[in-house]
């Protein structure tokens, strides 16, 4: 009895190693972190239908790697307000021309 004990332990250990090795060679399963079989978005998020978020480089600052919530396009500028901005810029240019015209140059 006492002579057989180390042998039994050795056999048990070998069986355990073979078992573990066989388990490691089998088909891998994804490490499931969610019970749901599809991506789950927070209530405030919507999935990106274009898939653009998946095509990004993942680098910081890459807009395509941003979260779906941050991909919402900015509000379309008001064309009339844009026209007024352009007019104001042109008026500023005119202002410069008028100011420059009054430079006598000491003639």
């Amino acid at each position: 009895m006492t002579r057989l004990r180390p042998r039994a332990v050795a056999l048990f250990g070998a069986a355990l190693i073979v078992g573990v090795a066989l388990a490691g060679c089998g088909p891998r399963r994804p490490a499931a972190t969610s019970a749901a079989p599809y991506p789950v978005y927070a209530a405030s998020q919507t999935p990106d239908p274009s898939g653009a978020a998946d095509s990004g480089s993942g680098e910081p600052g890459d807009p395509s790697s941003a979260s779906p919530a941050s991909l919402t396009s900015p509000a379309t500028p008001d064309p009339a307000a844009s026209e007024l901005d352009q007019i104001n810029q042109l008026i500023n240019d005119i202002n410069n021309s008028i100011q420059d015209s009054s430079n006598g140059g000491g003639e």
Partner: peptide
């Protein structure tokens, strides 16, 4: 008359057309 004529003539014509 570069400074008292040509300069103002150019700058003010630019301003007039731009307006």
């Amino acid at each position: 008359r570069v400074y008292v004529l040509v300069g103002p003539q150019v700058r003010l014509t630019i301003a007039a057309d731009s307006e």
